[in-house]
Nucleic acid binder design. Sequence first.
DNA 1: CCGCGCTTCCTAGAGCCTCTAGGTATTTGC
DNA 2: GCAAATACCTAGAGGCTCTAGGAAGCGCGG
Lengths: 188, 188
Amino acid sequence: MARAGLTAERVTRAAADLADEVGFENITLTALARGFGVKDASLYSHVKNLRELRLGIAMLAADELADRLGAAVAGRAGKDALVAFARAYREFALERPGRYAATQARIDPALLATSEGHRRNVENTYAMLRAYGLEEPDLTDAGRLLRSAFHGFVVIEGNGGFGHARKPSESFDRAVEALHVALENWPG
Amino acid sequence: MARAGLTAERVTRAAADLADEVGFENITLTALARGFGVKDASLYSHVKNLRELRLGIAMLAADELADRLGAAVAGRAGKDALVAFARAYREFALERPGRYAATQARIDPALLATSEGHRRNVENTYAMLRAYGLEEPDLTDAGRLLRSAFHGFVVIEGNGGFGHARKPSESFDRAVEALHVALENWPG
DNA sequence: CCGCGCTTCCTAGAGCCTCTAGGTATTTGC
DNA sequence: GCAAATACCTAGAGGCTCTAGGAAGCGCGG
Protein backbone atom coordinates (compact mmCIF):
# COMPACT_ATOMS: atom_id res chain seq x y z
CA MET A 1 0.00 0.00 0.00
CA ALA A 2 1.63 3.25 -1.14
CA ARG A 3 1.54 6.12 1.33
CA ALA A 4 0.35 9.59 0.57
CA GLY A 5 3.35 11.18 2.30
CA LEU A 6 1.46 13.72 4.34
CA THR A 7 3.04 16.37 6.50
CA ALA A 8 1.50 19.24 8.46
CA GLU A 9 2.97 21.59 5.87
CA ARG A 10 1.49 19.81 2.85
CA VAL A 11 -1.88 19.38 4.52
CA THR A 12 -2.11 23.07 5.38
CA ARG A 13 -1.12 24.12 1.89
CA ALA A 14 -3.69 21.81 0.30
CA ALA A 15 -6.28 23.12 2.74
CA ALA A 16 -5.53 26.67 1.62
CA ASP A 17 -6.05 25.62 -1.99
CA LEU A 18 -9.29 23.91 -1.05
CA ALA A 19 -10.40 27.05 0.76
CA ASP A 20 -9.80 29.08 -2.39
CA GLU A 21 -12.05 26.67 -4.24
CA VAL A 22 -14.95 26.13 -1.89
CA GLY A 23 -14.64 29.01 0.59
CA PHE A 24 -12.82 29.25 3.88
CA GLU A 25 -15.86 28.30 5.98
CA ASN A 26 -16.71 25.36 3.77
CA ILE A 27 -13.49 23.40 4.01
CA THR A 28 -13.89 19.93 5.37
CA LEU A 29 -11.35 17.48 6.67
CA THR A 30 -13.25 14.78 4.84
CA ALA A 31 -12.95 16.58 1.51
CA LEU A 32 -9.32 17.38 2.17
CA ALA A 33 -8.63 13.72 2.92
CA ARG A 34 -10.40 12.69 -0.27
CA GLY A 35 -8.02 14.95 -2.20
CA PHE A 36 -5.10 13.00 -0.78
CA GLY A 37 -6.77 9.63 -1.34
CA VAL A 38 -6.84 9.04 2.37
CA LYS A 39 -9.39 8.65 5.17
CA ASP A 40 -10.31 11.72 7.18
CA ALA A 41 -9.15 10.17 10.44
CA SER A 42 -5.63 9.99 9.01
CA LEU A 43 -5.34 13.77 8.89
CA TYR A 44 -5.62 14.00 12.64
CA SER A 45 -2.05 12.77 12.89
CA HIS A 46 -0.92 15.96 11.19
CA VAL A 47 -3.50 18.48 12.27
CA LYS A 48 -5.01 18.80 15.71
CA ASN A 49 -8.50 19.64 14.53
CA LEU A 50 -10.40 21.81 12.08
CA ARG A 51 -9.82 24.94 14.15
CA GLU A 52 -6.07 24.49 14.12
CA LEU A 53 -6.11 23.80 10.43
CA ARG A 54 -7.91 27.07 9.81
CA LEU A 55 -5.35 28.82 11.98
CA GLY A 56 -2.56 27.34 9.89
CA ILE A 57 -4.18 28.62 6.72
CA ALA A 58 -4.52 32.05 8.32
CA MET A 59 -0.81 32.22 9.08
CA LEU A 60 0.15 31.00 5.63
CA ALA A 61 -2.21 33.43 3.94
CA ALA A 62 -1.12 36.42 6.00
CA ASP A 63 2.45 35.77 4.94
CA GLU A 64 1.52 35.57 1.29
CA LEU A 65 -0.54 38.74 1.50
CA ALA A 66 2.29 40.55 3.25
CA ASP A 67 4.64 39.52 0.45
CA ARG A 68 2.34 40.95 -2.17
CA LEU A 69 1.65 44.18 -0.31
CA GLY A 70 5.32 44.64 0.48
CA ALA A 71 6.25 44.21 -3.16
CA ALA A 72 3.51 46.62 -4.23
CA VAL A 73 4.58 49.54 -2.05
CA ALA A 74 8.33 48.99 -2.41
CA GLY A 75 9.92 52.15 -3.77
CA ARG A 76 6.67 54.10 -3.80
CA ALA A 77 5.22 56.79 -1.58
CA GLY A 78 2.11 58.92 -1.15
CA LYS A 79 -0.71 58.37 -3.62
CA ASP A 80 1.39 56.01 -5.73
CA ALA A 81 1.90 53.76 -2.77
CA LEU A 82 -1.74 53.93 -1.73
CA VAL A 83 -2.99 52.97 -5.16
CA ALA A 84 -0.49 50.14 -5.53
CA PHE A 85 -1.30 48.87 -2.05
CA ALA A 86 -5.02 48.98 -2.65
CA ARG A 87 -4.82 47.20 -5.99
CA ALA A 88 -2.55 44.49 -4.68
CA TYR A 89 -4.90 44.01 -1.75
CA ARG A 90 -7.96 43.65 -3.91
CA GLU A 91 -6.17 41.41 -6.38
CA PHE A 92 -5.16 39.01 -3.65
CA ALA A 93 -8.66 38.90 -2.23
CA LEU A 94 -10.24 38.14 -5.60
CA GLU A 95 -7.61 35.70 -6.73
CA ARG A 96 -7.30 33.75 -3.47
CA PRO A 97 -10.66 34.22 -1.77
CA GLY A 98 -10.21 31.36 0.68
CA ARG A 99 -6.78 32.51 1.77
CA TYR A 100 -8.02 36.08 2.02
CA ALA A 101 -10.94 35.08 4.24
CA ALA A 102 -8.46 33.25 6.42
CA THR A 103 -6.46 36.42 7.02
CA GLN A 104 -9.62 37.96 8.46
CA ALA A 105 -10.52 35.09 10.73
CA ARG A 106 -10.86 35.74 14.42
CA ILE A 107 -7.60 34.71 16.04
CA ASP A 108 -6.54 34.49 19.65
CA PRO A 109 -4.67 37.77 20.32
CA ALA A 110 -1.76 36.02 22.01
CA LEU A 111 -1.31 33.83 18.97
CA LEU A 112 -1.81 36.71 16.59
CA ALA A 113 1.18 38.47 18.11
CA THR A 114 3.38 35.61 16.94
CA SER A 115 2.20 35.81 13.34
CA GLU A 116 4.90 37.35 11.20
CA GLY A 117 2.51 37.96 8.30
CA HIS A 118 -0.10 39.80 10.33
CA ARG A 119 2.58 41.98 11.90
CA ARG A 120 4.06 42.89 8.53
CA ASN A 121 0.65 43.81 7.19
CA VAL A 122 0.04 46.28 9.99
CA GLU A 123 3.52 47.69 9.53
CA ASN A 124 3.07 48.21 5.80
CA THR A 125 -0.12 50.17 6.34
CA TYR A 126 1.37 52.41 8.97
CA ALA A 127 4.46 53.15 6.89
CA MET A 128 2.18 54.27 4.08
CA LEU A 129 0.09 56.48 6.33
CA ARG A 130 3.03 58.18 7.97
CA ALA A 131 3.85 59.59 4.54
CA TYR A 132 0.63 61.62 4.84
CA GLY A 133 2.01 63.33 7.92
CA LEU A 134 -0.46 61.69 10.28
CA GLU A 135 0.30 61.05 13.93
CA GLU A 136 -1.47 59.11 16.67
CA PRO A 137 -4.32 58.76 17.20
CA ASP A 138 -5.09 59.86 13.64
CA LEU A 139 -2.74 57.17 12.42
CA THR A 140 -4.87 54.49 14.04
CA ASP A 141 -8.13 56.01 12.87
CA ALA A 142 -6.92 56.42 9.29
CA GLY A 143 -5.52 52.90 9.30
CA ARG A 144 -8.83 51.53 10.46
CA LEU A 145 -10.68 53.46 7.79
CA LEU A 146 -8.45 52.12 5.04
CA ARG A 147 -8.68 48.59 6.35
CA SER A 148 -12.44 48.86 6.65
CA ALA A 149 -12.90 50.30 3.20
CA PHE A 150 -10.64 47.80 1.45
CA HIS A 151 -11.94 44.85 3.36
CA GLY A 152 -15.55 45.89 2.97
CA PHE A 153 -15.14 46.40 -0.73
CA VAL A 154 -13.61 43.04 -1.51
CA VAL A 155 -16.03 41.22 0.75
CA ILE A 156 -19.04 42.76 -0.93
CA GLU A 157 -17.55 42.32 -4.38
CA GLY A 158 -16.61 38.71 -3.71
CA ASN A 159 -20.11 38.14 -2.47
CA GLY A 160 -21.58 39.43 -5.72
CA GLY A 161 -23.09 42.30 -3.77
CA PHE A 162 -22.46 45.02 -6.33
CA GLY A 163 -24.93 44.03 -9.02
CA HIS A 164 -23.94 44.50 -12.64
CA ALA A 165 -24.38 48.22 -13.09
CA ARG A 166 -20.79 49.45 -13.09
CA LYS A 167 -17.48 47.61 -13.13
CA PRO A 168 -16.25 47.19 -9.57
CA SER A 169 -12.67 47.88 -10.59
CA GLU A 170 -13.63 51.38 -11.70
CA SER A 171 -15.53 52.10 -8.52
CA PHE A 172 -12.59 50.78 -6.58
CA ASP A 173 -10.05 53.07 -8.21
CA ARG A 174 -12.29 56.05 -7.65
CA ALA A 175 -12.85 55.07 -4.04
CA VAL A 176 -9.10 54.88 -3.52
CA GLU A 177 -8.73 58.36 -4.98
CA ALA A 178 -11.41 59.63 -2.63
CA LEU A 179 -9.62 58.02 0.30
CA HIS A 180 -6.43 59.73 -0.81
CA VAL A 181 -8.27 63.05 -0.66
CA ALA A 182 -9.54 62.18 2.81
CA LEU A 183 -6.04 61.31 4.00
CA GLU A 184 -4.58 64.54 2.63
CA ASN A 185 -7.28 66.59 4.31
CA TRP A 186 -7.61 64.53 7.43
CA PRO A 187 -10.04 66.38 9.72
CA GLY A 188 -8.17 67.99 12.59
CA MET B 1 -49.77 16.68 23.94
CA ALA B 2 -49.74 20.48 23.63
CA ARG B 3 -48.57 21.90 20.35
CA ALA B 4 -45.90 24.50 19.96
CA GLY B 5 -48.00 26.50 17.51
CA LEU B 6 -45.36 27.01 14.89
CA THR B 7 -45.74 29.11 11.79
CA ALA B 8 -43.22 30.12 9.13
CA GLU B 9 -43.29 33.62 10.60
CA ARG B 10 -42.55 32.56 14.16
CA VAL B 11 -39.87 30.12 13.09
CA THR B 12 -38.06 32.77 11.05
CA ARG B 13 -38.21 35.28 13.86
CA ALA B 14 -36.84 32.79 16.37
CA ALA B 15 -34.13 31.88 13.88
CA ALA B 16 -33.13 35.54 13.65
CA ASP B 17 -32.85 35.70 17.43
CA LEU B 18 -30.81 32.52 17.44
CA ALA B 19 -28.55 34.00 14.76
CA ASP B 20 -27.93 37.04 16.95
CA GLU B 21 -26.85 34.71 19.72
CA VAL B 22 -24.70 32.16 17.97
CA GLY B 23 -23.87 33.80 14.65
CA PHE B 24 -25.66 33.67 11.32
CA GLU B 25 -23.53 30.82 9.95
CA ASN B 26 -23.90 28.79 13.11
CA ILE B 27 -27.66 28.50 13.26
CA THR B 28 -28.96 24.99 13.23
CA LEU B 29 -32.43 23.63 12.63
CA THR B 30 -31.81 21.20 15.44
CA ALA B 31 -31.02 23.97 17.93
CA LEU B 32 -33.95 26.00 16.66
CA ALA B 33 -36.26 23.03 17.17
CA ARG B 34 -34.90 22.51 20.67
CA GLY B 35 -35.87 26.10 21.46
CA PHE B 36 -39.45 25.27 20.54
CA GLY B 37 -39.41 21.95 22.38
CA VAL B 38 -39.93 20.15 19.11
CA LYS B 39 -38.02 17.72 16.88
CA ASP B 40 -35.96 19.14 14.05
CA ALA B 41 -37.92 17.25 11.41
CA SER B 42 -41.04 19.15 12.45
CA LEU B 43 -39.59 22.44 11.26
CA TYR B 44 -39.51 21.20 7.72
CA SER B 45 -43.25 21.68 7.51
CA HIS B 46 -42.72 25.41 7.95
CA VAL B 47 -39.36 25.98 6.31
CA LYS B 48 -38.11 24.36 3.13
CA ASN B 49 -34.54 23.93 4.30
CA LEU B 50 -31.71 25.75 6.02
CA ARG B 51 -31.01 27.87 2.94
CA GLU B 52 -34.56 29.16 2.76
CA LEU B 53 -34.56 29.85 6.47
CA ARG B 54 -31.45 31.98 6.07
CA LEU B 55 -33.13 33.80 3.23
CA GLY B 56 -36.12 34.52 5.42
CA ILE B 57 -33.86 35.97 8.09
CA ALA B 58 -32.17 38.12 5.46
CA MET B 59 -35.49 39.62 4.34
CA LEU B 60 -36.62 40.23 7.91
CA ALA B 61 -33.30 41.80 8.87
CA ALA B 62 -33.12 44.04 5.81
CA ASP B 63 -36.52 45.42 6.72
CA GLU B 64 -35.51 46.11 10.29
CA LEU B 65 -32.28 47.77 9.20
CA ALA B 66 -34.15 49.92 6.69
CA ASP B 67 -36.50 51.05 9.47
CA ARG B 68 -33.60 52.13 11.62
CA LEU B 69 -31.71 53.88 8.84
CA GLY B 70 -34.86 55.60 7.63
CA ALA B 71 -35.58 56.89 11.11
CA ALA B 72 -31.99 58.06 11.50
CA VAL B 73 -31.84 60.21 8.38
CA ALA B 74 -35.41 61.52 8.61
CA GLY B 75 -35.34 65.30 8.70
CA ARG B 76 -31.58 65.52 8.32
CA ALA B 77 -29.28 66.36 5.44
CA GLY B 78 -25.59 66.62 4.60
CA LYS B 79 -23.09 65.78 7.30
CA ASP B 80 -25.83 65.44 9.91
CA ALA B 81 -27.53 62.78 7.86
CA LEU B 82 -24.28 60.98 7.13
CA VAL B 83 -23.31 60.81 10.78
CA ALA B 84 -26.76 59.67 11.88
CA PHE B 85 -26.87 57.07 9.12
CA ALA B 86 -23.45 55.74 9.97
CA ARG B 87 -24.13 55.49 13.69
CA ALA B 88 -27.47 53.78 13.19
CA TYR B 89 -25.81 51.35 10.81
CA ARG B 90 -23.05 50.45 13.23
CA GLU B 91 -25.43 50.23 16.14
CA PHE B 92 -27.61 47.75 14.32
CA ALA B 93 -24.65 45.63 13.32
CA LEU B 94 -23.30 45.47 16.87
CA GLU B 95 -26.64 44.99 18.53
CA ARG B 96 -28.03 42.39 16.14
CA PRO B 97 -24.95 40.70 14.68
CA GLY B 98 -26.81 37.69 13.32
CA ARG B 99 -29.44 39.76 11.60
CA TYR B 100 -26.79 42.09 10.25
CA ALA B 101 -24.79 39.22 8.80
CA ALA B 102 -27.98 38.03 7.16
CA THR B 103 -28.43 41.33 5.33
CA GLN B 104 -25.04 40.73 3.74
CA ALA B 105 -25.68 37.17 2.68
CA ARG B 106 -25.38 36.30 -0.97
CA ILE B 107 -28.87 36.32 -2.43
CA ASP B 108 -30.18 35.37 -5.83
CA PRO B 109 -30.48 38.69 -7.74
CA ALA B 110 -33.99 37.90 -8.97
CA LEU B 111 -35.12 37.34 -5.40
CA LEU B 112 -33.22 40.33 -4.13
CA ALA B 113 -35.23 42.58 -6.39
CA THR B 114 -38.38 41.55 -4.52
CA SER B 115 -36.95 42.45 -1.13
CA GLU B 116 -38.52 45.63 0.14
CA GLY B 117 -35.91 46.12 2.82
CA HIS B 118 -32.91 45.81 0.54
CA ARG B 119 -34.46 48.24 -1.91
CA ARG B 120 -35.14 50.82 0.80
CA ASN B 121 -31.57 50.55 2.04
CA VAL B 122 -30.16 51.38 -1.38
CA GLU B 123 -32.63 54.22 -1.73
CA ASN B 124 -31.70 55.74 1.63
CA THR B 125 -28.05 55.80 0.72
CA TYR B 126 -28.60 57.43 -2.62
CA ALA B 127 -30.85 60.10 -1.18
CA MET B 128 -28.12 60.98 1.26
CA LEU B 129 -25.46 61.14 -1.42
CA ARG B 130 -27.46 63.29 -3.79
CA ALA B 131 -27.31 65.99 -1.11
CA TYR B 132 -23.57 66.16 -1.82
CA GLY B 133 -24.30 67.12 -5.40
CA LEU B 134 -23.01 63.87 -6.84
CA GLU B 135 -24.28 62.41 -10.11
CA GLU B 136 -23.77 59.10 -11.86
CA PRO B 137 -21.40 57.39 -12.02
CA ASP B 138 -19.93 59.17 -9.01
CA LEU B 139 -23.11 58.38 -7.12
CA THR B 140 -22.52 54.68 -7.56
CA ASP B 141 -18.85 54.91 -6.72
CA ALA B 142 -19.43 56.99 -3.61
CA GLY B 143 -22.25 54.69 -2.52
CA ARG B 144 -19.98 51.70 -2.87
CA LEU B 145 -17.26 53.42 -0.87
CA LEU B 146 -19.62 54.21 1.98
CA ARG B 147 -21.07 50.74 1.98
CA SER B 148 -17.61 49.21 1.92
CA ALA B 149 -16.27 51.40 4.70
CA PHE B 150 -19.26 50.89 7.00
CA HIS B 151 -19.54 47.22 6.32
CA GLY B 152 -15.82 46.65 6.63
CA PHE B 153 -15.66 48.51 9.89
CA VAL B 154 -18.44 46.67 11.65
CA VAL B 155 -17.25 43.31 10.35
CA ILE B 156 -13.74 43.86 11.64
CA GLU B 157 -14.99 45.31 14.90
CA GLY B 158 -17.47 42.51 15.45
CA ASN B 159 -14.68 40.07 14.75
CA GLY B 160 -12.53 41.61 17.47
CA GLY B 161 -10.09 42.67 14.78
CA PHE B 162 -9.25 46.08 16.19
CA GLY B 163 -7.26 45.12 19.26
CA HIS B 164 -7.65 47.18 22.39
CA ALA B 165 -5.56 50.21 21.58
CA ARG B 166 -8.25 52.81 20.88
CA LYS B 167 -12.01 52.73 21.26
CA PRO B 168 -13.61 51.70 17.97
CA SER B 169 -16.43 54.19 18.40
CA GLU B 170 -13.94 57.06 18.32
CA SER B 171 -12.18 55.75 15.26
CA PHE B 172 -15.56 55.26 13.65
CA ASP B 173 -16.68 58.82 14.19
CA ARG B 174 -13.41 60.14 12.83
CA ALA B 175 -13.64 57.85 9.83
CA VAL B 176 -17.12 59.14 9.09
CA GLU B 177 -15.82 62.69 9.25
CA ALA B 178 -13.06 61.78 6.85
CA LEU B 179 -15.60 60.23 4.50
CA HIS B 180 -17.61 63.42 4.70
CA VAL B 181 -14.51 65.32 3.56
CA ALA B 182 -14.05 62.86 0.71
CA LEU B 183 -17.65 63.27 -0.39
CA GLU B 184 -17.43 67.05 -0.31
CA ASN B 185 -14.24 67.01 -2.38
CA TRP B 186 -15.11 64.08 -4.57
CA PRO B 187 -12.32 63.79 -7.14
CA GLY B 188 -13.47 64.94 -10.55
C1' DC C 1 19.82 -8.01 5.62
C1' DC C 2 16.98 -8.32 9.56
C1' DG C 3 14.26 -7.07 13.08
C1' DC C 4 12.85 -2.65 16.20
C1' DG C 5 10.50 1.22 16.73
C1' DC C 6 8.50 5.33 14.83
C1' DT C 7 5.27 7.23 12.00
C1' DT C 8 1.60 6.78 8.68
C1' DC C 9 -2.52 5.27 7.76
C1' DC C 10 -6.47 2.21 8.79
C1' DT C 11 -11.25 0.55 10.83
C1' DA C 12 -14.84 1.26 14.17
C1' DG C 13 -17.78 4.09 16.31
C1' DA C 14 -19.99 8.04 19.00
C1' DG C 15 -22.24 12.34 18.46
C1' DC C 16 -24.29 16.14 15.91
C1' DC C 17 -26.06 17.86 11.74
C1' DT C 18 -29.63 18.12 7.32
C1' DC C 19 -33.29 16.34 5.08
C1' DT C 20 -36.93 12.63 3.31
C1' DA C 21 -40.77 9.44 3.84
C1' DG C 22 -44.54 8.22 5.90
C1' DG C 23 -47.44 7.83 10.19
C1' DT C 24 -50.40 9.76 14.24
C1' DA C 25 -52.87 13.22 16.55
C1' DT C 26 -55.00 17.76 17.10
C1' DT C 27 -57.51 21.51 15.30
C1' DT C 28 -60.42 23.92 12.25
C1' DG C 29 -64.31 24.66 9.29
C1' DC C 30 -68.57 23.00 7.78
C1' DG D 1 -69.61 16.22 15.57
C1' DC D 2 -67.17 14.69 11.38
C1' DA D 3 -63.86 15.26 7.69
C1' DA D 4 -60.07 17.63 5.86
C1' DA D 5 -56.09 20.18 6.81
C1' DT D 6 -52.00 20.55 9.28
C1' DA D 7 -48.89 20.21 13.31
C1' DC D 8 -45.96 17.11 14.97
C1' DC D 9 -43.91 12.42 15.35
C1' DT D 10 -40.52 8.21 14.48
C1' DA D 11 -37.19 6.05 11.55
C1' DG D 12 -33.45 6.37 8.87
C1' DA D 13 -29.91 7.72 5.21
C1' DG D 14 -25.93 10.33 4.54
C1' DG D 15 -22.25 13.81 5.69
C1' DC D 16 -19.53 15.95 9.10
C1' DT D 17 -15.76 16.06 13.36
C1' DC D 18 -13.11 13.68 16.33
C1' DT D 19 -11.33 9.60 19.54
C1' DA D 20 -9.35 5.05 20.35
C1' DG D 21 -6.82 1.53 19.15
C1' DG D 22 -4.74 -1.61 15.47
C1' DA D 23 -1.90 -2.73 11.26
C1' DA D 24 1.17 -1.73 7.72
C1' DG D 25 5.38 0.89 5.57
C1' DC D 26 9.98 3.19 6.66
C1' DG D 27 14.49 4.08 8.48
C1' DC D 28 17.85 2.79 11.70
C1' DG D 29 21.45 0.00 14.36
C1' DG D 30 23.34 -4.23 14.60
